[in-house]
Design a protein around this nucleic acid. Structure first.
Length: 222
DNA sequence: TGCCAGGCCGGGT
DNA sequence: ACCCGGCATGGC
């Protein structure tokens, strides 16, 4: 049985409506948020971003010039603040030193090339890279996160031990290469994951995908 | 109180 | 090629 990708997408869209996702007033802000939200709730990320906004630091050159210790204190509410300050700095070095601080210039680079460049930055892994490419750059790459694997794993559509690349290819291979749809689909998966597919226990009652569950209810990892 | 949140790295087998 | 500890704040 092949995964009913389009069916899942349609149901989520009907149930929840368009998510108009990834709050951020600019591509740069979205990019910063992608790093800050690593394994962290968005509410905490917003506090950190608010701190940066208050100091007028949501601009590449300005943030690049902030001393590391100062950056650490500003983003502290987002957690992992020391390592994330270093990761932001690494990313800013790519943006400023290679692209002159121009987001527009950065996104002139082709999707596969820019993806590799981002992955070459210490602290930018596949999900963060894809989030930047899709949500800041509007480029058609599918973002996989913990919810994606959990929702599809519990329905038996993918293996629980499938790695990032496998899951990504599962989606990209079964859908048209459309950035707006990738954007919406991932946002909907986070929505249904948060509300109906927590780590501790699945809340399958009233889930828009409930009747697509396999016999015997949701699957669990070994 | 303890568990969890929109990961990723580096060192050890 | 895996496996695992470390990283840190705030909400429920």
């Amino acid at each position: 049985m092949t995964t009913p990708l389009r069916e899942v997408y349609q149901r989520l869209l009907v149930a929840y409506g368009p998510q108009s996702w990834w709050p951020g007033d600019s591509p740069f802000e979205v990019m910063i948020g992608a790093v800050l939200t690593q394994n962290t709730s968005w509410a905490n990320v917003e506090r950190a971003i608010d701190n940066l906004r208050r100091e007028d630091l949501l601009e590449p050159q300005a943030l690049y010039r902030v001393p590391l210790e100062e950056l650490e204190e500003l983003i502290r509410p987002a957690g992992y603040y020391r390592i994330k300050a270093r990761r932001l700095r690494n990313l800013l070095e790519l943006l400023v030193e290679r692209y002159g601080g121009s987001i527009e210039a950065m996104f002139q680079t082709s999707l596969p090339e820019l993806r590799e460049e981002l992955l070459g930055v210490s602290g930018i892994g596949p999900e963060t890279a894809d989030s930047i490419l899709l949500y800041a750059g509007g480029l058609p790459t599918f973002v996989v996160d913990a919810y994606t694997g959990r929702v599809f794993g519990r329905h038996g559509w993918i293996a629980f031990d499938a790695d990032y690349q496998e899951i990504k290819e599962h989606f990209e291979g079964g859908l048209p290469r459309d950035a707006a749809m990738f954007n919406e689909f991932h946002a909907l998966l986070v929505r249904v994951g948060k509300e109906r597919c927590r780590k501790k226990a699945p809340l399958c009652k009233d889930c828009p995908l409930a009747d697509l569950l396999p016999e015997g209810g949701p699957r669990e990892p070994e």
